[in-house]
């Protein structure tokens, strides 16, 4: 995902001199070629995320479109007020992007787990929040950023995730992509959990249950039409995210469902409880610990259908 996104940024930057790639002393073996090729469109801001974010806003206010990169929480939580005041309030064209979403850097410990970023960025006025579900989606995001005049936050995984979409997709900011059709249960996933959701849907299919899978790559603005259709057409909705159940995709869907007139579907948020991981382990280890696996999702879906 990370590489797909970077490559798309490099390609766009070659055509559009407004684009600047700013990194917080990260991007080893990814950015060196671009740095040499386009020094005026590149900056290593050092390990100083607060300064980086305000500088990104400053450059954007002078007409640049800045892609600001770091890993884990560093370009969001570390400099949240800079994001809020300097980037969002000024409507600066800064696209903040991080790799290492969720537990990508699991074994590195809690300081490198990113499980509140969607919540805090979703709360920022005017900020579009995107977590692509596979490399094909990730490659589409930079163009969507250029097409929309406003700030973005993009959460990426690492390198090496499989493609989930079979072919080209129609990627639009704020529009969910239906990955599996089905009317029994809806699995709404964002980011890395799209893979888990599609595999869970395949398991359910073997048991005669048709699950709809939505890639909710844009967490804000949320695709309310897709949520409404899922609520009207399927009796059960599960949201799945590698993120705290507080404030992220599940919360966004819950907020909509709670205020929606009429009887709602049965609904559950799957994600990380509001607790720091008590285990040390890889991404897979931690996801299994929190039940964020295809088996866990399929089982919850079945229990909810049976209840």
């Amino acid at each position: 995902m990370r590489n797909a996104f970077f490559n798309a940024v490099f390609a766009l930057a070659r055509e559009d001199e407004r684009i600047v790639l700013m990194v917080g002393d990260l991007g080893f073996r990814i950015v060196e070629g671009f740095m040499a090729e386009r020094p005026k469109q590149f900056l290593n801001a050092g390990i100083a995320e607060q300064n980086m974010m305000s500088m990104a806003a400053g450059m954007a206010l002078e007409g640049k479109i800045v892609f600001a990169y770091s890993i884990a929480n560093f370009p969001t939580l570390r400099c949240l007020e800079q994001v809020r005041n300097d980037v969002c309030y000024h409507g600066a064209r800064v696209a903040i992007f991080c790799s290492g979403g969720g537990f990508t850097y699991g074994s590195m410990g809690v300081t490198h787990h990113v499980t509140e970023d969607l919540a805090v960025t979703r709360a920022m006025p005017g900020l579009t929040v995107i977590a692509p579900g596979d490399p094909i989606e990730a490659a589409c995001v930079p163009a969507a950023i250029i097409a929309h005049d406003g700030p973005f936050y993009v959460r990426l995984g690492k390198a090496g995730e499989p493609n989930i979409h079979a072919g080209p997709i129609d990627f639009q900011r704020g529009r969910a992509i239906t990955v599996r059709e089905g009317d029994d249960v809806s699995l709404i996933a964002t980011g890395s959990m799209l893979l888990v959701a599609t595999r869970a849907a395949d398991r359910l299919k073997a048991d005669g249950i048709n699950a709809r899978v939505l890639s909710m790559h844009t967490v804000k603005p949320l695709d309310l039409d897709a949520v409404e259709a899922a609520a009207a057409q399927t009796g059960v909705i599960l949201t799945i995210e590698e993120h705290s159940i507080i404030g992220g995709l599940g919360a966004a869907v819950a907020e909509y469902l709670a205020e929606r007139p009429g009887a709602g579907p049965r609904f559950k948020r799957l994600g990380v409880p509001s607790a720091f991981a008590s285990e040390i382990g890889s991404q897979d280890h931690l996801l299994a610990h929190f039940g964020l696996t295809e088996a866990g999702v399929a089982q919850t879906a079945k229990q909810m259908l049976a209840s």
């Binding site: 390990i47 884990a72 929480n73 560093f74 570390r78 850097y105 074994s107 590195m108 410990g109 809690v110 300081t111 490198h112 720091f276 008590s278 285990e279 040390i280 382990g281 890889s282 280890h285």
Partner: peptide, 26 residues
Amino acid sequence: YLDGSRLAGHATHKGVPGIEVSTGAL
């Protein structure tokens, strides 16, 4: 750094005697 360990890849105070505070975000 392995699954189920107490020793994460950044200094972790939880469950590790002698580590005063967790660090890793510089």
